[in-house]
């Protein structure tokens, strides 16, 4: 399925990732640098961000040698579980659906599963903003604290913050416009919350948000 997705991204939609080889080399180096679980936290502007991030961080060859480099995802149940074919895609695409604004107990079950996967060396991708950003810019104050909770709970967990943005992307959309070039930036951080429980989760989530804001500022500074 993944090669088909890549064909669609590259040849049907005409997307490109700027300096893809260098981006992947950096991602490989960062992932190699970590000896434990890695939680991937990207910014969120379109419905296919998880595909774009996956494309950026690992080559098809790398996935052939280790499918663990294909990250688990948490798509919004209302958006991605509407039709049989979307459900099928999510099933083969290592997805655990979550309902935003749903019961917190149900959300905690999903987060616990993700924690379990992280402990077993799987890559897990969670969009810390919960949904696509409304303003088109990262809002460090809108982070979902569940992300911080997982990072704090899983021993040795590191967080790979990913900032990905298409050159024509102004605000949130379903799909990025065609024939677009994406820029990608990474920052690897270690959760270092001083507090525990919900307060610790909030502290770590805010740290993720601030890192994404910094990456975003770097992105726009470079463009100028």
């Amino acid at each position: 399925m993944w090669p088909l997705a890549l064909l669609w991204l590259r040849h049907v939609r005409g997307y490109r990732i700027r300096r893809l080889a260098a981006v992947r080399a950096q991602a490989r180096a960062l992932l190699r640098q970590t000896q434990g679980p890695v939680l991937i936290c990207p910014n969120h502007l379109t419905w296919i961000d998880s595909l774009l991030v996956q494309w950026a961080i690992s080559s098809p060859w790398q996935l052939l040698t280790g499918f663990r480099f294909f990250a688990w995802n948490t798509p919004e149940q209302a958006n991605f579980y509407r039709s049989v074919w979307l459900k099928g895609l999510c099933y083969v695409g290592k997805c655990l659906p979550i309902r935003r604004g749903g019961e917190r107990r149900a959300q905690r079950v999903v987060l616990a599963k993700l924690g379990w996967l992280l402990e077993r060396g799987e890559l897990v991708m969670i969009f810390p903003e919960g949904g696509r950003t409304v303003t088109g810019r990262v809002d460090a104050d809108s982070m979902s604290y569940g992300v911080g909770g997982i990072a704090n709970t899983v021993e040795g967990c590191r967080i790979l913050c990913v900032y990905l943005r298409g050159e024509k992307q102004v605000e949130k959309t379903v799909l990025p416009v065609r024939d677009q070039v994406f820029s990608v930036r990474f920052a690897l951080i270690t959760p270092d919350a001083n507090e525990t429980g919900l307060r610790g989760a909030r502290e770590t989530a805010r740290g993720i948000g601030q890192t994404l804001v910094r990456l975003e500022n770097d992105h726009f500074a470079d463009r100028q």
Partner: peptide, 9 residues
């Protein structure tokens, strides 16, 4: 819903 945690705290 994410802000419920802030309210509880």
């Amino acid at each position: 819903s994410a802000r419920l945690v802030d309210i509880v705290l």
